[in-house]
Nucleic acid binder design. Structure first.
Lengths: 262, 262
DNA sequence: GATCTCACATCGTGATCACATTTGCTGTTT
DNA sequence: AAACAGCAAATGTGATCACGATGTGAGATC
């Protein structure tokens, strides 16, 4: 597969930096509470501090980063309370999306969702956590986009970003594939069935339950007590390669394209 | 009353610019779809383009402003579809908050809410739209904060910003006070009653209905057809003073304070 | 008279510099 | 040995400049 094409919005350096930092956050390359500096990030990325500033400001607005009172930039701390509240909101919002997905007129929807769920199962069974997570992502956002509310999808996307350490922990925890292949697969199959039969209450309930189980698993796995530098895994956590960011290629053509959406 | 003290976060020039622009958006000083420019905004505000850039980028991240494919910065267009979807999400999220408010242990809550609602009624009856809106704001966010989920309050705050033209229209439409003093007052009283008795379903339902009525009124009042430059009021709309922004005082001390929240 | 062309003003973006504040360390003191 | 003072390095913020892309309007062309 060739190098992935640039997204429409990746035409400016700031946006490429944003994408890079966002990915690093989702991959858990940074530890919650860790301090970042514009200049050192710029050095790592091979740009001037300017585009980094823009990207960081955006991530602050999205609450993935936080600015302390002394103006230092840190990765959003990840406390139990915070995460619990976040999950509670996610259950509400993503449950709502699932409910709306029941009203979708998209005939191929159910089939696609079944495909994603199946892919997740298979990937998990061969312990390919990354692929399983990707399929899991496709499944969830397949549902959310079927809700037909683009602004809702955006909001949920942001909530996923803010739950970054959760995703990172799943990725680093090989045992996670067991959960994905048992609990998640079965519950998500219930979501699909509810969407197929148009049972809105069941769709909302099942999707919320999927999140609830994920939350319960995570709480058992993640050590919140070490909140100062963000909790590592309680046991068996293969340590990541540590915080670092890859340079951003600068000599891409800077071309614009037509439409903007939303 | 003395000049309002600077908020903790208003210590940097960028944040003051942000606050100014945000207020201008909420007051309808800008028309949806209108183009903005960093340099001219900076000139109006009496700063360099730099802090304006930061503020604008933040507002873009919050989807109050939009960047076109040609990199122009415009006020987020306000279409019927967009607004309808936004209101649907608001009903869900704010209804959820109302439901959670039923579980609040705050003994003074119901009393305070009754006070806000009463203030709104009285202000509306003397056709003081601004005061009525302020009381309405206090009531709503009184409920939302009682939900005990700060991140939820943030999200709702953002949704209110994105519904900016709605608030602006209410402010410019004297007849709006009638709606506030009849429909809204009664429905919000039902919200309070539900919270008092702990009836979660009724709280959610009533609050959602409040939004639904507001939406219905707005659709009758606002002319979406002129979407190019944002819809003015259909009739009776006293034209605003037009887009303009007041300068930001620069020689404030730049002091920091302790805590950061969230 | 409508359409095209081209020059010019203006735009956002990125880089660089200046500055006040904050941070971290070192050597001293109690 | 722990607490403190003070200095030097590093930080975010804001201003200014350069550059390529965009948009606009006057004048030429058909």
């Amino acid at each position: 597969m060739p190098e992935r094409l640039l997204t429409l919005e990746d035409s400016s350096l700031s946006e490429r930096v944003y994408t890079a930092l966002r990915l690093a956050l989702l991959r858990g390359k940074f530890v919650p509470g860790e301090a970042l500096s514009l200049r050192s990030l710029a050095a790592s990325l091979g740009t001037s501090p300017m585009p980094v500033r823009a990207a960081v400001q955006r991530l602050i607005a999205e609450k993935a980063l936080v600015q302390t009172a002394s103006r230092a930039i840190i990765v959003a701390p990840f406390t139990y309370e915070n995460f619990k509240d976040l999950m509670r909101i996610r259950m509400e919002l993503e449950g709502f999306a699932a409910e709306r997905a029941c009203m979708s007129k998209d005939r191929g929807l159910v089939g696609r969702l079944k495909g994603f769920n199946q892919s997740m199962l298979e990937a998990a069974q061969r312990h390919d956590v990354e692929a399983a997570l990707a399929a899991n992502y496709s499944f969830h956002f397949g549902v959310y986009e079927a809700a037909g509310l683009p602004q809702l999808t955006d909001m949920i996307t942001n909530l996923w970003l803010r739950a970054g350490p959760y995703l990172a922990a799943v990725q680093r925890q090989p045992r996670a594939s067991e959960i994905l292949s048992t609990n998640s697969f079965k519950i998500q199959d219930r979501v699909i069935e509810a969407i197929r039969t148009g049972d809105r209450k069941a769709a909302r309930f099942s999707l919320a339950m999927d999140l609830r189980f994920a939350f319960a698993w995570f709480v058992k796995t993640y050590d919140f007590s070490d909140n100062r530098l963000g909790g590592p895994l309680k046991r068996d956590g293969t340590e990541g390669t540590g915080p670092d960011v890859r340079p951003v290629s600068r000599d891409e053509p800077r071309r614009n394209v037509k439409a903007y959406s939303d």
